[in-house]
Design a protein around this nucleic acid. Structure first.
Lengths: 137, 137
DNA sequence: CGCAATCGGAACGAATCGATCCGATTAGAA
DNA sequence: TTCTAATCGGATCGATTCGTTCCGATTGCG
């Protein structure tokens, strides 16, 4: 019931990135130093965020990353899903991997689905833009 | 961003327990067979739920567990916290363990606190009574 | 007073997480 | 055109936590 420190770092890094002017070139080393996240870890995170479509990447000298879309259109759920994979509270929700012993007789499952929806909604309601701003909700 | 299978099992077991008449004697073996959860794991879970105050335990022959309070007064948050520990999305929220590199300069922290509150609220809103019933919210 | 049944805590193995390292790719300079 | 430098991308390794299992402590019953 807590997000991994990878996801935690990712949120902080994205918030830092959002404070830069839009379209500016961002390198992994750059943001790593800025946020205090260890460089190799930062590289790994940037890679995942890029392949998830939140950042665009360019290789070679003068390469780096850019925000794929404006901060207002990126939610906490987007970042967490990019790093941790799909948000699903229990195994019996996601896809077809029904290795649960109870299978069909489980009366709890439909309710967990609703819970999952609520949690995901809470995370989608928080945009990156609001994170990079000052205080207050 | 998903609860551990321990917590998952715990929810299912508590829901099963809630379907029994109030005050009835419940043994770990009993519920284990009923839910399909492996017996040793079930024992461990019952122990944690008891020490969290959700169940009362009695040792010795004829001992077992009983619901400490009625199902309506037990929420998903209660069960999850009993098994996984306090619900906190990030490390910087809970207590004084401030080993975060950013410390005071982290502008993201106050918002994460709000997120944490929202998620926790969603889990507290679901009572065990609604879980043990049939379908529909 | 001994026995059986049940809870409680301790030890073991496995999986995932998190950090590090090295190779692939590209732009720019000589 | 070729070489060099800078940067991303994937693969490897150790560590922490999760999940399971086993054994001892405690209590009621015969």
């Amino acid at each position: 019931m807590r997000l991994t420190s990878l996801a935690d770092y990712a949120v902080v890094m994205m918030a830092a990135a959002a404070r830069h002017p839009a379209g500016e070139r961002l390198t992994a080393s750059n943001l790593a130093e800025e946020t205090g996240v260890p460089l190799p870890t930062a590289q790994k995170l940037m890679g995942r965020l890029a392949s998830a479509g939140l950042l665009t990447s360019a290789r070679g000298t003068g390469g780096g990353f850019r925000m794929a879309r404006e901060a207002k259109g990126i939610s906490l759920a987007d970042i967490i899903e990019a790093v941790e994979g799909p948000i699903a509270m229990t195994n019996c929700i996601e896809g077809a991997a029904h290795d649960c012993v109870l299978e069909g007789s489980c009366r709890v499952k439909p309710h967990l689905n609703a819970v999952n929806f609520a949690v995901r909604g809470a995370l989608q309601g928080v945009s990156l833009a609001s994170l990079s701003q000052g205080v207050s909700k």
